[in-house]
């Protein structure tokens, strides 16, 4: 993810089947026959990628929800968004 992506709004791509297993997620895209694994942090970020929040707003929201981990949130969200982009499971609105 680039620095300017902080102002962009991510949205989940269509066509994925989703299964929640404990605090983690598996996504599967039938057409692309790809499966993506999300740990707990990525699962949270994924849920927030609805196309109505910027990456910066997602970071702010998670910092407010988990103030004890606020110093890690920006890094975690950035890494997670990079993972989403590499897996091609999100798009920018």
């Amino acid at each position: 993810m680039n620095d300017h992506d902080i102002c962009r709004r991510p949205r989940q791509k269509e066509g994925y089947r989703l299964e929640q297993l404990d605090d983690e997620l598996l996504l599967y895209h039938l057409g692309e026959t790809t499966v993506v694994y999300f740990n707990q942090t990525a699962s949270l970020v994924w849920q927030l990628c609805q196309g109505d929040r910027t990456v910066g707003e997602i970071i702010d929201l998670l910092c407010a929800a988990y103030p004890e981990a606020a110093d890690r949130v920006r890094v975690d969200v950035s890494e997670t968004m990079t993972h989403f982009l590499e897996a091609r499971c999100i798009e920018w609105t």
Partner: peptide
């Protein structure tokens, strides 16, 4: 492995998907 990690690994070994 967590269930999700196991699920990911199982998908890679599935031969009749």
């Amino acid at each position: 492995l967590t269930p999700a990690q196991a699920g990911l690994a199982l998908m890679e070994s599935l031969v009749n998907a």
